[in-house]
Design a protein around this nucleic acid. Structure first.
Length: 507
RNA sequence: CGGGACUUAGCUCAGCCUGGUAGAGCGCUUGCUUUGGGAGCAAGAUGCCGUUGGUUCGAAUCCAAUAGUCCCGACCA
């Protein structure tokens, strides 16, 4: 039996259903915010750990800056103010007082404080104090934090008023080095998405009109969701000297000249979990790639025969301990023995909905034969859901099994991406006809009716943006691998367009 | 922030039109029978009917305001 809401009926309902069924998060009573529950937060902790390692491997260090940013800091960078002005939470008072039995804000602040929507301005302020000489550069830092953007249409994980993320901020002595940094971090994100999340992405840069407010170049990775829409999974900005100028980050270069530093910033957020769901989940619930699963193996004792309860529990415990000392991806395998006093079959489906990669059932029969029965989450809908194996062989191969699941999940997602990037649309007319269809969920073969990505020509003329809006489309990115050919602009129909871009509906 | 739908038990919802103090299924608890693909029977517990204010002898029901959720837009690293 599948979830109540399946993909082909209503993709948005299915998405919410997966989150509830997997017990990952829920809408909070605090408007627009979410409560991230243990299974969802566990996945975030895995993302944090794996990404943190990569961030440190590329010589960055973690630190922490204040949640509150003085209003005036935002005013320093004109584009930045404009970009964020409409979605700020502002602290204006410092206490409450009781008036007529009601609590009301009292003691207005001299200067309002912004709850950070992003920290460029306050970090730039610190950088200006830290940097004096070219010998102080580069500064390579990162922080794991929460940020607030006053979103009007929240969706769990994809867009909430408060979300968790990491934001890297760096300052460099040269244009080239900073630009290189922004590109390097985009590759780090790609590595995380592809190798850990099993979520392939398209790398590119945002068109001018869609850059981060205050950036010179915004790089991004875009992932294809199962309904053919695109999700921006991460961004990396080359900020040039814009923030350095507004915050006065200057240094004396090796020629004894004063110069503004070049800065970057880059981030990924809990939105990645939304991407993970829409990449891997199916009509039975969530599927978590082994690298990210809080528990990679869940053992469920089948206590059918009351006389053998102790024996079976001991056997399950033994298996757990044997697995616990095995390694996958350079880490100890995370195994959970689920001995809650519940029906085994209920536990089995609960872990199926949560998407634990391997579910192992051990009962009297297994005890007798010194074997296990295990299920592979991603093959649940097939006929071969039930696998028996000798216990020693199972334990010996468990790391390979997890690796196979990880690989298969990536292959499936990669296949979907490959099948659904349309590259043969050459005219504005065909383009319009293609997107006249509604979005539907894409089955893995790419055979279901769908509207996904079109990779085609764009003139770069911003006059075409009205057309884009009218078609409810977005230009996701200008991919790095440009063909260099010339063709008809798919929006304006005019010849001579040279840019290859990804057109898609987006989240 | 605009348009629409919705808000009643832990969950999904009925009841509202036509006002008379609360219902179902699932879940939960207990017992028995079951148990390796979402169990069966029996008994039981669970409600300020989103909030506030009207109308009324009486409001889940009618009216108004307000808040929240979801969808579609606008906006959105």
């Amino acid at each position: 039996m599948a979830l109540k809401n399946i993909r082909e009926n209503s993709y948005p309902d299915w998405y919410q259903n997966v989150i509830a069924a997997a017990d990952m998060a829920e809408v909070s009573s605090s408007p627009g915010c979410m409560v991230i529950k243990p299974w969802g937060y566990g996945i975030w902790e895995r993302i944090q750990r794996l990404l943190d390692e990569k961030i440190k491997d590329t010589n960055h260090e973690n630190c922490y800056f204040p949640l509150f940013i003085p209003l005036s800091y935002f005013q320093k960078e004109a584009e930045h103010v404009e970009g964020f002005a409409k979605e700020m939470a502002i602290v204006t008072h410092s206490r409450l007082s009781m008036e007529d039995g009601k609590l009301v804000p009292a003691s207005p602040l001299e200067e309002p404080l912004i709850v950070r929507p992003t920290s460029e301005t306050i970090i730039a302020d610190s950088f200006s104090k830290w940097v004096h000489s070219y010998r102080d550069l580069p500064i390579l830092i990162n922080q794991w934090a929460n940020v607030v953007r006053w979103e009007m249409r929240p969706r769990l994980f994809l867009r909430t008023r408060e979300f968790l993320w990491q934001e890297g901020h760096t300052a460099h002595s040269t244009f080239q080095e900073a630009e290189q940094e922004a590109e390097t971090m985009l590759k780090v994100y790609e590595d995380l998405c592809v190798n850990d999340m099993a979520m392939p992405v398209i790398k590119g840069k945002k068109p001018e009109y869609d850059k981060f407010p205050g950036a010179v170049t915004t790089y991004c990775i875009e992932a294809m969701m199962q309904d053919g829409r695109s999700l921006q999974a991460g961004t990396s900005h080359f900020l040039g000297q814009n923030f350095a100028k507004s915050a006065n980050i200057t240094f004396i270069n090796s020629n004894n000249e004063q110069e503004f530093a070049y800065t970057t910033s880059w981030g990924v957020s809990t939105r990645l979990i939304g991407g993970l769901i829409m990449t891997h989940a199916d009509d039975e619930g969530m599927c978590v790639p082994p690298k990210l699963a809080p528990y990679q193996v869940v053992i469920i004792p089948i206590l059918k025969d009351k006389n053998k309860t102790d024996e079976i529990n001991a056997y399950a415990e033994k298996i757990k301990n044997a697995i616990k000392d095995k390694f996958f991806g350079g880490e100890k395998i995370r195994v959970k023995l689920d001995n809650r006093p519940k029906e085994a079959v209920d536990k089995m489906w609960e872990w199926t909905r949560k998407g634990a990669p391997l579910i192992v059932e051990v009962g009297a029969k297994d005890l007798e034969k010194n074997a296990v029965m295990f299920r592979n989450r991603i093959n649940i809908s097939g006929s071969d859901w039930k696998n028996f194996e000798d216990i020693d062989a199972f334990i010996a191969s468990i790391s390979d099994k997890l690796q196979n699941i990880q690989n298969t999940m990536l292959e499936r997602a990669q296949e979907r991406l490959t099948h659904n990037v349309v590259t043969d649309i050459k005219t504005a007319k065909d383009f319009e006809a293609y997107f006249a269809n509604q979005n539907a969920y894409l089955d893995n073969s790419g055979k279901a009716p769908k509207v996904a990505f079109v990779r085609g020509k764009w003139s770069g003329d911003e006059a075409t943006l009205d057309k884009l809006k009218e078609m409810r489309l977005t230009i996701r990115c200008i991919p790095f691998d440009q063909s260099g050919t010339e063709g008809e602009c798919l929006l304006s129909g005019k010849a001579g367009a040279t840019l290859d871009v990804i057109y898609a509906r987006s989240y």
